[in-house]
Nucleic acid binder design. Sequence first.
DNA 1: CTGAAAGCGCTTACAG
DNA 2: CTGAAAGCGCTTACAG
Lengths: 350, 350
Amino acid sequence: MTEKTTTTKRRTKSPTMNDVATVAGVSVATVSAVVNNVPIVRPKLKDKIEAVIEEIGYKRNTIARSLKTGKTRTIGLNVADIVNPFFTELVSSIQDYLQEQGYAVILSCATRDNTTEEAQIKLLLDRMVDGIIIAPASDDERLKNMIKSIDIPVVLVDRICEGVSTDSVVVDNTRSVSDLITYLIHLGHKRIGFISGSGDTSTARDRLAGYKEALAREDLPFDQGLVRSGRFREGDGYNAAVELLSLPNRPTALFASNNLMVIGAMKAIRDFGLSCPEDISVACFDDFRWADVFEPRLTTIAQPVQAIGEQASRLMLERLSGQVVTDMPRRITLASELIVRNSCRPAAIK
Amino acid sequence: MTEKTTTTKRRTKSPTMNDVATVAGVSVATVSAVVNNVPIVRPKLKDKIEAVIEEIGYKRNTIARSLKTGKTRTIGLNVADIVNPFFTELVSSIQDYLQEQGYAVILSCATRDNTTEEAQIKLLLDRMVDGIIIAPASDDERLKNMIKSIDIPVVLVDRICEGVSTDSVVVDNTRSVSDLITYLIHLGHKRIGFISGSGDTSTARDRLAGYKEALAREDLPFDQGLVRSGRFREGDGYNAAVELLSLPNRPTALFASNNLMVIGAMKAIRDFGLSCPEDISVACFDDFRWADVFEPRLTTIAQPVQAIGEQASRLMLERLSGQVVTDMPRRITLASELIVRNSCRPAAIK
DNA sequence: CTGAAAGCGCTTACAG
DNA sequence: CTGAAAGCGCTTACAG
């Protein structure tokens, strides 16, 4: 096998710790202590060694270190769909926090349909990451079993899996949806179409629960016919909205369970020749940058994305450092914020 | 140092290749051949070894492998701002392609202001990645020198750095902006405000060149007073638009050089009590999902993000595999698409 | 086709 | 405070 050099530039073998030791006239153990900031080397010697390191351009080989220590200082991050702005910000925030603590983030998304979340997580495990943060796409049994079998720290974000006991960070989905629906009811809406995510996610279930809770509190009947669900994608939102708008007694307001489904819903509204908020009110879960700029400016529930990422990173870091060793899963629940803009109007009196 | 176990679950030492060899009654070399699919082991023995692997749950240790081979099968990806939807899609596409080829992607973004791109790239290098894909934020000399000194394959995407010779993938910025500005001119606009990115990026320069080119071709004078620049951020777009709208002879159309600056521009327009497209036309570089849903539906230049990611991945993979060893940098230039929606109207006749 | 052995570049007890 | 040496778990010539 004639191995060609993979780079165009000449790659001279980089100096090792041994080279440093030889040049400095000490043993590798001493060099290692200096490199790792173990304060047992007398200052003068340390200076000398550091000078040699600088001189010959020594860089510690992380791979060799990992092999020896069994730690890669790398965290795997698996989210269903990084293109969804909520997940994008989550990824950004997590990578930010972890990097600050000296951890790298390996990304893994099941974008293609021919791969599963389990396969994605397996890939991460293959890479010998020290821990995994997962925003699970579903409650799938196989996925749950896989997560249970992972022998490194796991933190679940955004959604939780029934029966899987790991640390997790979520928002108070039920309460925030309940607040938003209550707001709509107070505007006079009695028939509110609910575009739900798929029932195999905790977020979809909790958001639907919020809808029911608000109706109950306001003494409005729950009508299953006003609920349509899909898999949190734009197309699902479109289909759901089409069905709701086709109802003989059309709802006067629509709630979409995430930022993608609301796009579909808006398109459906346009295709029906209706406009928002004149003909129908619309609100959704998840805020996004554009919501405040274009018309209608959507009323949304904004999740504290930065804080979610921060908390998830913290939980992970605490496990990794051994500060927290309890078997008890820890759950952080954060509050979301209702942001009222101009996409909802008082219901027309009939 | 009493090292506590970092996991709550009991982590039994996982089996090694040696264990497999012992149980199967062969040498590690044979096991290695089986694991690496080197077809020199006789089928029956291979089956037996595979059975043992399955039985004792052996998983190859990637770290040890990397130490030996000098390859991590990991690519570093550095983008200025992952939250910008253009970069998000780029990251998603690259990670998709590379993962399919067995490469993992380590993400690195200079989100925090107290870190530099060089520092971010250094972090990647520390991780012993096999190659780096960079969307450089600027033409900064230090960054350029650093990139030049990297001794593994580098591919630049989106922007290029003057004087740095690496493979790169860009779009035809000049031409696409020229087309868009021509479109505006044909709508009757003679005073088109140009919100530019910062001059130390090739994209900003090329886009501005497109503006000038269109004006020249249509025999319109170039007026420096109609150009304002910023650093591609929302706030910069806002400030630029405020200045342009404050002009005694206000432009009748505004072009923003990216998807973030256009948000700022729209906010400025609103703050001036104007509306788009009634009072002023607006267009921008970069398409985004929401552009087609809310009003005004923006006229944009859509980059072929998937293709950019695909090409960048391909260039990288070709270097990595040794298929391409030339010192000549290869440059791929892709075409963008003008998407006309309803945010631009014929200029009012004066 | 298979095995024994060296070695990738570190870290870390263990002596001194 | 410093050094000699073992070993992390692989891959890969080299023999046979």
